[in-house]
Amino acid sequence: MMALSRTTLFGGVLLLAGVIGFALLPGFVGGYGLSMAINFLMFAILATAWAMFSGPSGYVSLATVAFFGIGAYTVAVLGERLPWGAVLLLAAAIAFLVALLVGLSTLRLRGVYFVIFSFGLAELIRQVVNWYESTQAGSVGRYVFLDITQEQIVWQLTAVLALLFIVGWLIERSRVGFALRMIGDDETVALHCGVNITLIKVLVFSLSAAFMALVGAIVAPRWTYLDPSIAFNPNISFQVLIMALLGGARRLYGPLLGVIPMVLLFEYLSTHFPHLFSVLLGVTFLAIVYLVPHGVAGLIEGYVQRYRKRFPGKRAESDIPKEGAL
């Protein structure tokens, strides 16, 4: 039964407000505001998609940029030959298939093995693309000339973000989401309970990869020139990881809480301290790991729980978040 709790309704209203806000945004802000909005939406989708798989399952993936780059490259190669909608679908489908293949072979690796492999997967794909472009296609870079404005990018990203939240919400409350959390708690136990762990992991991993590729495809027209070191820039994976962790990867809305401050911080650092960017990025990362281990969402929920303990009986039982993974 779809008994909507107060929290869910609240989330739905917020989502609707957000969509309307971003849809109307281009009427109110200039070019700079639009480009900030694109940055924000782009990282919001990437971080939420990352957390959709890595949050509950505990598999830390550093392959975000691999799928993002696949999306961008699909546009670079096919953007002028096919209608835009087909290109987007194709980008998502290719990433889904690649993730399926990679997932089938690597998701049986546990913990650190998976981190390392995903860490290198993006580099591997980048090298192969680089090798192909320079030896087979003739030149390393490609030009993307498409008639797509900043406004249209904002609208498309808003739609994808809304879709992602709906998909993420459905997964979270479905059997798949429950199985994924079980895998995160204890894979052996999940296996013994009859969960098809490989299927669940690969399915959600591929789904999140498809969303990452969509982002890459949608923002590709922003760069008129594209080469493997731009499309597969490993910093994107790292930034997404930091944002999702700061926000809290255990909640669907968690990464969003990390994306807002981090996009602003990156913008500030790269304009004011371009030379110190990397050092300050590292220090921020260390501060997050040591000071906010469960993210902003964890902090907020801690406060909420303490408040509810002090004033019991004010909320319905179903509103109280469950302890444990998620």
């Binding site: 990397s278 050092v279 300050l280 990025l281 590292g282 921020t284 990362f285 260390l286 790991v289």
Partner: peptide
């Protein structure tokens, strides 16, 4: 990972 960025940055 944070340490990586600090050393690389320096």
């Amino acid at each position: 990972f944070g340490l990586l960025f600090v050393i690389q940055g320096l």
